[in-house]
Amino acid sequence: MEVKRGELVVLLGANGAGKSTIFRTISGLTKPSYGEITFLDKKISGWSPNRIVMLGVVQCAEGRKLFPGMTVFENLKMGGFVHRQNKRELKALFPYVFDLFPILREKKDQPAGSLSGGQQQMLAIARALMAKPKLLLLDEPSLGLAPLIVKQLFDIIQRINQEGTTVLLAEQNASAALKIADRGYVIESGEIVIEGSSETLLNHDQIRKAYIGA
């Protein structure tokens, strides 16, 4: 599997196909038993999670993994943990993420645990952006959200990508994801079974049957 600079690549697969395992391994939360992960010519497999974040590979995990007792603002501040030496630059990022997610500005002094599911997902993405990712990994951001919110979220993901961040997106919601993606991989039991451009995948019979239901 490969993601090129500036791309938006989607990883499709049913529950248990291995999407999250791939993401956890890229982020260093799980050690690979074999195989290799490279980022910008550096072999990062086996690195500790904090070094991977420092290099610019930032994950917004499934289940959001926010700090529920901290306020929205504090969560965002912690998102910039690896850039804590550079206070001015960090401060300048707040208007950017608040601009992407205006609702977070409104709720900035509320504890993250009190937000709705969609707002928590936005906070999770915003927190990941605070680490200034070169590659943003998004693990099922649409999970459990209302269709309208999903559409909003995908528009924002597309905008993040267009503004220069490479995105790898794991999704079950194939039609929405393929609409904004450049390319896609379909995985089953941890193996890539189909790959191709978004149009190819959207028109692929097997995928239409399995993931789009048309």
């Binding site: 904090n50 993994k65 700090f67 912690m78 680490a131």
Partner: peptide
């Protein structure tokens, strides 16, 4: 895990 993912 949230802490690991922000680079702590």
């Amino acid at each position: 895990e949230g802490a690991y993912l922000v680079g702590i």
